[in-house]
Design a protein around this nucleic acid. Structure first.
Lengths: 241, 241
DNA sequence: TAGGATAGCTACCCATCAGTATGGTCGAGG
DNA sequence: CCTCGACCATACTGATGGGTAGCTATCCTA
């Protein structure tokens, strides 16, 4: 049964061409980081499937085909595990902000780009931890840390909205409420995505951006399209019934 | 006078916002239904404050100034308690659908009315239970029940969207994705409302409806400001640096 | 080949908490 | 005054699960 973990992680048996004495220990250090990441990833998957409180460390260990103390060898506590998952998810979104910061396009397009990355992140395997993790489950210190990260993202969105209103690419609106609405819609993806994976995270985000941009109320030229609309409507209702 | 527990828990403590029916028991006000509802309401409050798993039945009992067996006298299990809280929240939304069903206005306005009630419900004391309760915490039977109720609401929104597209009051769109976006934005209120109660649930819902209706892209002839945009953007990036 | 660091396991501890057994109090009806 | 039943408390059980102690095996460096 227990084949002594030689095959799963990395067969470091190859004769190394240059026998630098530090080579091996460096290799091992890298190995350790890889394993630690695997632990965090496995935790994220289990949390995603069953929720934080319904997942025991034995579950996570079993999923990795090791035992609980082994998990504790890479992580100090269950709480820290959740925290790491959270940070991993948030980092994707922070990267999105960094990516668009220097783009030479109107703010609305920068916002859209962020929202697309945002949606992808929420639909990723760390999405659940980032979105559904409750700070009540964490120590005050970690809770503060997480709140700060969330707030940073929130204010990043508000800022893009304000800039969009200023440069005329976004309809004047309340940045705070609008940011809440956008982030909420995207965050919520984490709640239903598991059960309906017919679309990728990017596709969902794209659809949402389209909805956010256009709004529900028909655009000015809508009256001109009424004939075509009616045709499509017929086809639709025929399909729906 | 019950000399046993009258003195320890500070007898003259009135400032509790929710009057506990056990206080009134001295006045012979014995109404089982009222007490049961008080139990559920207290549970909702505690779940809202600390989360389901971080709330023990002792906590809930203490909040009512009784003991755990008393709670079990009115409720069969913690799980059922969560379920009842959930149903109480969902019922508010179902009522919203019933209210608008017979209104003689375009579907978009009926949808808006539902969304307003929806937002209020999510910001109410049962909002957390309705939104953040994970079906992983419930037995399969109750989980199915809850999924059915959620699905009913989801399809109710989709239906209003379809009707709006048909009667021309809503821009043609994908009903499923749009429903997800709307419900997500509103559901998310439950995550941040506790910490920012500067607005009522109704006001938030109203703001969201405005955002959903108009969309981010400016209405009318606002798209040929690109020259001015560029200037403004330069100024901004200069400030940002 | 010794000795230390790395890495993982078995077996255990113990705090928490859902749920219960049992028995006491009090008002009402006889 | 006595009993019945509704209501509630004390004090317990049992299981789950986070976290640890301590042993073992392997590899690296000397």
């Amino acid at each position: 049964m227990n084949s002594r973990r030689a095959s799963p992680p990395a067969p470091g048996k190859q004769p190394v061409p240059v026998a630098s004495p530090w080579r091996a220990s460096r290799e091992r250090l890298r190995d350790r980081a890889v394993k630690r990441e695997a632990v965090i990833r496995a935790a994220a998957r289990e949390f995603n499937r069953k929720g934080y409180h319904n997942t025991s460390l034995d579950d996570i260990a079993a999923r990795l085909e090791v035992t609980k103390p082994t998990v504790y060898y890479y992580v100090t506590s269950k709480e820290q595990l959740l925290f790491q998952c959270f940070v991993a998810g948030v980092e994707q979104i922070r990267a999105a902000f960094r990516d668009v910061r220097h783009l030479e396009v109107p703010a609305r397009e920068r916002l859209n780009a962020v929202l697309r990355h945002y949606g992808e992140a929420v639909a990723s395997e760390f999405g659940w931890c980032m979105v559904r993790a409750e700070d009540q489950d964490l120590s005050p210190a970690m809770s503060r840390h997480i709140k700060a990260l969330k707030s940073e993202i929130d204010h990043g969105i508000r800022r893009l909205i304000r800039e969009g209103v200023q440069d005329g690419s976004i309809e004047p609106c309340d940045p705070k409420m609008t940011a809440f609405a956008l982030a909420g819609a995207l965050n919520w993806i984490a709640h239903w995505y598991r059960e309906d994976q017919s679309l990728t995270g990017a596709q969902i985000a794209e659809a949402f951006v389209t909805i956010f941009e256009g709004g529900l109320r028909p655009r000015g030229s809508a009256s001109r399209l009424s004939a075509r609309e009616r045709i499509r409507r017929r086809a639709r209702s025929a399909l729906a019934r």
